[in-house]
């Protein structure tokens, strides 16, 4: 099938094009998943509106204590950016294991969100970091928690011509971690991934714990039970193990060519416990100055 390619020079023009061209028209950022879906006949893509040359949307900049990341920021940039590595180590870790180096030079953060794969690597991190997504539409801009954007496998609550422009990480997340399991050690779609973020209060108790898993449900999954259970508790191996059990119980994975549901549940537990342990170590290191 021929593919009509449009390259708008402004967000306004991009939205207009999308409205005119309708269903079979897709926004194109890095295209690292969209084009594969099209080539494998899994998505009808008659036209693309290429966002990749829109200026200024790939910036990573401070936002209060946190970060504001343009939707067109490449995985490679997130992986290597010094501020991301310090303020949100889990995001750098997740970006680092998306595809191979060539893919990471193309794939974008906004694309990873909009693509809404249940196995996306950066989306659980954004959930664990309580990120907001800034969305521009024909009727103006809105700012929504990332969780509200996810609607299921390959589906978001984005309206037809809405474009993700930025991701906001309101607070630093020095105590965050991301782990991923796959059959290989690189170039993998997650069999399961886990992202966590911990904040401690002045007494050293858990002020906030956030935990999200990938590839264990029809979308990236927040394990709210575990988050609630850990709040106000002193971090300990036993606590993390209990949270891991809740993570396993919350998982609703499928069996497929990559792994069985049983193994995925098992990994949900193991990765959760390890990610919590690692995030805690990082947090302690960040507060005491002693490297983890």
């Amino acid at each position: 099938m021929p593919l009509n390619f449009h390259r708008p020079s402004s967000l306004r023009e991009a939205m207009d094009l999308k409205q005119d061209l309708g269903e079979a028209c897709h926004f194109l950022a890095g295209g690292t998943d969209l084009m594969i879906q099209r080539n494998r006949g899994r998505k009808i893509v008659g036209a693309v509106v290429d966002l990749s040359r829109l200026r200024g949307l790939d910036r990573i900049e401070p936002l209060g204590d946190g970060l504001r990341i343009g939707a067109l920021a490449r995985m490679r940039a997130l992986e290597t950016d010094e501020r991301v590595r310090i303020l949100a180590p889990a995001l750098a870790e997740a970006a680092r294991v998306v595809g191979g180096a060539q893919v990471r030079h193309m794939a974008t953060l906004g694309g990873n969100i909009a693509n809404a794969s249940p196995a996306a690597d950066t989306v659980p991190v954004l959930l664990a970091l309580a990120a907001f997504v800034v969305v521009l539409g024909p009727n103006g801009e809105r700012r929504v928690p990332i969780a509200e954007l996810l609607a299921g496998r390959g589906r978001t609550t984005l309206q037809a011509a809405e474009i993700i422009t930025h991701v906001e990480l309101p607070r630093p997340a020095r105590g965050s971690a991301f782990l991923k399991a796959g059959r290989r050690k690189a170039m993998e779609i997650a069999v399961v991934n886990a992202a966590v973020s911990l904040e401690l209060d002045a007494k050293g108790l858990i002020h906030a714990a956030r935990l999200a898993l990938g590839a264990v449900a029809d979308r990236s999954l927040v394990v709210a039970d575990a988050e609630a259970m850990m709040r106000g508790q002193a971090p300990s191996p036993e606590l993390f193990k209990a949270a891991a059990t809740l993570a396993r119980d919350a998982s609703r994975p499928i069996s497929d060519v990559r792994a069985s549901a049983d193994y995925r549940r098992h990994l949900a537990s193991v990765l959760t416990e390890r990610a919590l342990t690692l995030a805690h170590k990082r947090l302690v290191a960040a507060t005491t100055g002693i490297p983890a």
């Binding site: 191979g100 290989r184 050690k185 170039m187």
Partner: peptide
């Protein structure tokens, strides 16, 4: 999903 080994 056909997994040849990578350098890693």
């Amino acid at each position: 999903d056909y997994k040849m080994p990578t350098a890693q």
